[in-house]
Each structure stands twice: as structure tokens, then as C-alpha cells.
């Protein structure tokens, strides 16, 4: 099958989406956005611009006040509560506040995402080790996440988000607490997953992440799209220019 000839499938489609938090805090205003399969999109903007809200709307952690949200072919707003798991299994999200279980080990925290889809124990073990190696956390396998540094916790959160190869990865400030080398590791992991077919939406303040990137950059301000750059088709598809050596290291 020649995938290059087929039109790009829409993975995320937002039409005139608004979100107002009570009493009348306008977080998102009439945003329309389409993200196609295997696309990488950077969402940027100052704090309070609406990046996190946008990601939460896509993962149905919030419902929009108005507009339409379609993710991986599902009408997110009309999706009944009992079927939300279908959406959540396709969308892996790395949260800004990590959402880790501090009393449980690193391995347990990552395993949760695989257990809910009934992966066999051997597969879970293998995948956890693979991810921890890629994120340089192998020695923390049995450490309680409450005992980790924020940078380490952030990486565990990312590992959990990508553990079951979701079709869409939403990363909310994924490198906020990381040094340059670890940032490169994370971005290399994202690039690898993108090569395998994942669509990525990365919300970040960190301009170094998308400087000279060939991918689309959307800048939000006060809940609206301020500017949007187009993806450069012929450029290298490496997500992070300084990561190729790491990418070579982790890619099979």
C-alpha cells in the first residue's frame, strides 16, 4: 500500500472551539485546528494562553463550552462516559503535573497504562525496561516515584504516556524540568514514536525545542491562535536537531 499517495488522515479536528471556566474565564476562544496523522505540532504561548486547556479538551478531560472536537475519528463531545476509554487508549498524555502515584515504583506507574489494556506481564516488563533505557532511568526501576527528582518524575510521566504506543501523544511542557541531554533523549523518543506513526502535539515554553524545526508551530495568546507556521516538507523530520546521535542510539 502506497501511503504517500493517500491523503493525510485527520487525527485531531477542532472547529470553533471555546472553553469558558466558571464564572466567566475565557480559556479558549473560537479555535479551529486540524492535525493530520504523523504530524508534529508545537503549541507555544505565554502562561495562561490556553495550551493546557487545549490538550485537556482533546483528551476529554474537559468538555468545550461550544464548538466541535473530533479526535481519531471520534466525536469527543458526544462520546458517552462509558466509551471514554476508547479515546484515552488512543491518546497518551504527559501531564504538566505528572499525575504519578508517589507511593508506587517507577515500574508500577508505567505499568498502569499497559495493564488497563490487559498486556501480558512479560510484555509489560519488556516495554518498561525499553522505555527506562531510552529515558536513562533503568536504575530507578524499583524506586518510589515520590523519591525521584522532578526531572525524573517528568520522564516517568512521559514513559507512561507513550508506553502502549498511542496514536496521538499530547505532551504538556514535557521538558520543563529537564537538562539539555535529557531533553534530547525525550525528543529522540518522541521522534522515534513519530516515525512509527504517532501524531504529536507538544505544548511548550521552551523555544529551543522548536527553533529551526520543520514542523508546524502554533502560538496561542489569550485563548486564540496568534500565529501559525506551516511545516517545511523537505526538511529533515528529526524533531530535535541535537538529538540524531541519541536517536541512532535508541532506534532499532
Amino acid at each position: 500500500m502506497n501511503l504517500e499517495c493517500s491523503p493525510p488522515a485527520t487525527m485531531i479536528d477542532l472547529i470553533k472551539v471555546s472553553k469558558i471556566y466558571p464564572p466567566d474565564v475565557q480559556a479558549i476562544s473560537d479555535i479551529s485546528l486540524t492535525v493530520t496523522k504523523k504530524e508534529i505540532v508545537f503549541l507555544t504561548g505565554v502562561s495562561g494562553a490556553g495550551k493546557t486547556t487545549l490538550l485537556r479538551l482533546i483528551s476529554r478531560m474537559e468538555k468545550p463550552t461550544k464548538g466541535m472536537v473530533d479526535v481519531a475519528g471520534m466525536d469527543v463531545i458526544k462520546l458517552p462516559e462509558r466509551d471514554i476509554h476508547l479515546l484515552r487508549r488512543k491518546v497518551g498524555m504527559a501531564y504538566q503535573d505528572f499525575k504519578l502515584l508517589p507511593e508506587r515504583t517507577v515500574a508500577d506507574n508505567i505499568a498502569i497504562a499497559l495493564e488497563v489494556v490487559y498486556c501480558p506481564r512479560s510484555v509489560i516488563e519488556k516495554r518498561i525496561r525499553e522505555l527506562l533505557e531510552q529515558l536513562d532511568l533503568v536504575r530507578k526501576y524499583n524506586t518510589r516515584t515520590g523519591d525521584l527528582s522532578r526531572g525524573e518524575q517528568q520522564r516517568v510521566s512521559i514513559a507512561r504516556a507513550v508506553a502502549n504506543y498511542p496514536e496521538i501523544i499530547l505532551a504538556d511542557e514535557p521538558t520543563g524540568n529537564l537538562d539539555a541531554e535529557t531533553t534530547a533523549r525525550v525528543m529522540a523518543l518522541f521522534t522515534q514514536l513519530n516515525h512509527k506513526g504517532a501524531t504529536l502535539l507538544i505544548a511548550t515554553h521552551d523555544r529551543s525545542l522548536f527553533q529551526d524545526t520543520p514542523h508546524r508551530i502554533i502560538e496561542l495568546r489569550s485563548g486564540r491562535i496568534l500565529s501559525q507556521s506551516e511545516a517545511r516538507e523537505n526538511d529533515s523530520d528529526d524533531l530535535f536537531e541535537t538529538a540524531p546521535s541519541l536517536l541512532e542510539e535508541i532506534e532499532p
Binding site: R82, H85, R88, R89, K99, I112, A113, V116, R160
Partner: peptide, 8 residues
């Protein structure tokens, strides 16, 4: 968390 990662 279980809900967020897709538990039924």
C-alpha cells in the same frame, strides 16, 4: 489515573 490511561 486509571480513567485517564483508558481503563474501562
Amino acid at each position: 489515573l486509571l480513567r485517564l490511561v483508558g481503563a474501562t
